[in-house]
Design a protein around this nucleic acid. Sequence first.
DNA 1: TTTTGAGTTGTTCGA
DNA 2: GTCGAACAACTCAAA
Length: 479
Amino acid sequence: MNGSVVWFRRDLRVTDNPALLAAAARGGPVVGLFVWAPEEEGDWPPGSASRWWLHHSLQRLDASLRERGSRLILRRGPTLDAIPNVLRSCHCDAVFWNRLYDPDIVQRDIGIKQRLRECEVRAESFNGSLLLEPWELRSVSVAPYQIFTPFWKACLARLAPDRPRPAPERLPGMSRWPDSLAVSDLKLEPEIDWAAGLRAAWTPGEEGGAFALRRFLEEGLAHYADERNRPDKPSTSRLSPHLHFGEISTRQVWHAVHHQGHSNCDEKIDDNVRVFLSELGWREFAHHLLYHFPHSSHAPLREEFRRFPWQTNVAHLKAWQRGRTGYPIVDAGMRELWQTGWMHNRVRMIVASFLVKHLLIPWTEGAKWFWDTLVDADLANNTLGWQWTAGCAADAAPYFRVFNPILQGQNFDPDGHYVRRWVPELRAVPTQCIHCPWKMPNDVESKARLSFGKDYPPPIVEHDQSRIRALEAWNTIKK
DNA sequence: TTTTGAGTTGTTCGA
DNA sequence: GTCGAACAACTCAAA
């Protein structure tokens, strides 16, 4: 009896998967297990877009395991029932998994490991997703880092990520497999099919992740430092959902990009590579913060923000969610999100700043909407992103940094290609008005075949006024 | 302990 | 049109 169960969660790959390799190394049968137990994830069970992705990724993983002689058994929670049940029915005596770092999941997993060990089951977890785990790095004062630059410097000084390890070629199987649900039984796909845009934009699964990395190395990386802020250019990696679901490991990405950097210009690391790797650094930093400040997905890291005069305005929130604020760059972003489950990072900052500063709507509302609509929704990244925008993270932006959606549009989408792609009613608007169509002269408006205010809304708030109002609101919480 | 330097991503105004 | 300064004060990290 030396069969092993690999409990898959967000490590949906066979390459460079420490838990899977540990199971394979024992030489006995290897059984993949996925347990659907959203109620065990606290206030943040996977959102709609994530569920769609998960559905497809599970199918791919099962296929990939079957090619190797194993398979993926699907069960519903409670996890603490499902794991022992599968262990018994396949006569396995060990469970391996890769660690997650979201507070509620950490607590659950600690309990599960303890219970399994009490039952004489070998239960072991591994680091399958971070370059350094949150407890591996402390500042000199022993307190967790709260500011990115010193955090990342310290990481870089210590970092020597292992080389990624190849997938096991063969996995010993069983003669009789335990019962399994079908992926469709989990009902992860939407009942009303709104996922056409997601299907067109993404290939969930390990192969899709490898393909995205290859494409980025060939087409994106060489211009990354200059163009990563341009939503009209294909220079970002688009790896975020693959990284979230662990379809590719951070180590794989790190080594591939590093290698490319060295082959480009011998000793010196390319600026593009340096900038991209620091984005992986932000992912590490986000996980570090959420682990050490487990309440931060709900509450501001800076205490005084509890008194911030947020406003409730359902109509404004709806307009923001549906991409009808009247600011083209904001609306383009929100519609890209709605249709594809993803938004360019620069545009995420612009729409977030707009919600929080122009509309004074709580950042948690934005975080919730992103959580439900993003295919890369990740509690750590989402939390840090929103806290940063709202200015309540430790290394917050200065209070006076209020993005001007017109200027941001003109700077980062200078030809309006991005806006025209996602806000088709503005397609014929000339470039000089594309980011402020309300300034369009009447004769131009008729030529643009646009009835302003009917086809496209006027701005729901005025920028200059909103900016002043935001600065005043920030003033009220000063000590 | 105290001190010092610094903090991803910006905007506006006036010279 | 371009350019530099001003926009708060605070807290984190390290010496």
